[in-house]
């Protein structure tokens, strides 16, 4: 009997492992597709069946970061004859490689990528710090109408954000926040702060208030106790909250598409816009997407220990 059941268990284990392998394979296939396509020569990108083995190239990345501008013959002549200051205006102050016929400029991608970083990092910092302080207040003090206020905070998440896109657009235009970093930062912070409050409240509730009370009695102020005792204890929760906020802000597409067009445009609306005209070069789009994946992957990887502990909430602390 024992033998049979143990053999049954072994078969069960093997089946489980096989299932995990299959699921992992299915999950990772699109990622592999994107990564491999971003190293393919253009003619192999759309073959059917897909090409698995190929000689990797970096040309998609070169194309991603540069743009070629074809100068018309008249423009070349104008440029050659122009005085130095007009030339400066003509190239828009950019350093160019000049063949006489065309020029290679930096593409729009790096700027968009940097915009994404600025907006996502700043809004994450803001949302997490505001969320932590608010959650601390709710957790430690008697707040009149606490339940209602918390529900109100959460209720901002209940509406699909796109519903308010048009009024927001009009308000932003009136306030001059259209196509600005600040505008997107405010928007994403507002999205995330409600989530951050709720998540952080759970984490801070877990920290025994006795620690701070001991610090108060030991001669520290409430603020000092918060920074010296609560923050280090809440590090795990802060990391988890930060990852979620960062991912939300980093991936946001709809508002970025509506609210920005050039100066503050982030990567998500930019990448598909390249598909736009003519025959799309899928390798370039794949390269852009691949690079876009990296920050979240790295950020999550760096915080993985905190995340694991964070996700199990109070399970580890006794």
């Amino acid at each position: 009997m024992a033998v049979v059941s143990s053999r049954g268990q072994r078969i069960g284990n093997l089946l489980a492992i096989a299932a995990v392998i299959v699921v992992t394979f299915i999950m990772l296939a699109p990622i592999y597709w994107i990564v491999s396509t971003s190293f393919k020569p253009r003619n192999l990108a759309t073959t059917n069946p897909p090409t698995i083995l190929f000689e990797p190239e970096v040309s998609p990345f070169v194309k991603l970061f540069t743009k070629r501008v074809q100068l018309k013959p008249k423009e070349v002549v104008d440029y050659e004859n122009a005085p130095w200051f007009e030339r400066l205006v003509f190239d828009g102050g950019e350093r160019i490689t000049r063949s006489g016929k065309g020029e290679i400029q930096l593409s729009g991608y790096p700027d968009r990528f940097i915009n994404s970083l600025i907006v996502a990092i700043t809004s994450t910092l803001l949302a997490v710090s505001m969320g932590t302080i608010t959650a601390y207040g709710f957790s430690r003090f008697k707040v009149k109408g606490e339940a209602d206020l918390l529900f109100f905070v959460l209720s901002t998440r209940m509406l699909p954000p796109i519903v308010v896109a048009i009024p927001m657009f009009l308000m932003y235009r009136a306030a001059g926040l259209n196509d600005s970093h600040l505008g997107l930062i405010i928007l994403y912070t507002a999205f995330n702060v409600s989530f951050a409050v709720w998540l952080m409240k759970g984490f801070i509730d877990e920290i025994p208030k006795e620690y701070e009370e001991a610090a108060l009695v030991d001669g520290y102020t409430r603020i000092q106790a918060f920074f010296k005792i609560v923050l280090p204890e809440a590090a795990t929760g802060i990391a988890a909250t930060a990852v979620f906020c960062f991912i939300t802000a980093w991936n946001e597409y709809a508002f970025a598409l509506i609210m920005t067009n050039r100066r503050a445009q982030t990567a998500p609306p930019f990448i598909p816009s390249q598909i736009g005209s003519g025959l799309p070069d899928w390798t370039v789009i794949a390269a852009g997407t691949f690079l876009f994946l990296l920050p979240v992957a790295i950020f999550t990887f760096l915080l993985r220990n905190h995340l694991l502990r964070g996700m199990s909430f109070g399970a580890i602390r006794k």
């Binding site: 006795e210 620690y211 001991a214 610090a215 108060l216 520290y220 005792i229």
Partner: peptide, 19 residues
Amino acid sequence: GPAERDVALVLQQYSLYPR
């Protein structure tokens, strides 16, 4: 406030600063 009273408090648990 608690700091000004110059009292020391010993609790049943969670009495030490972690970390």
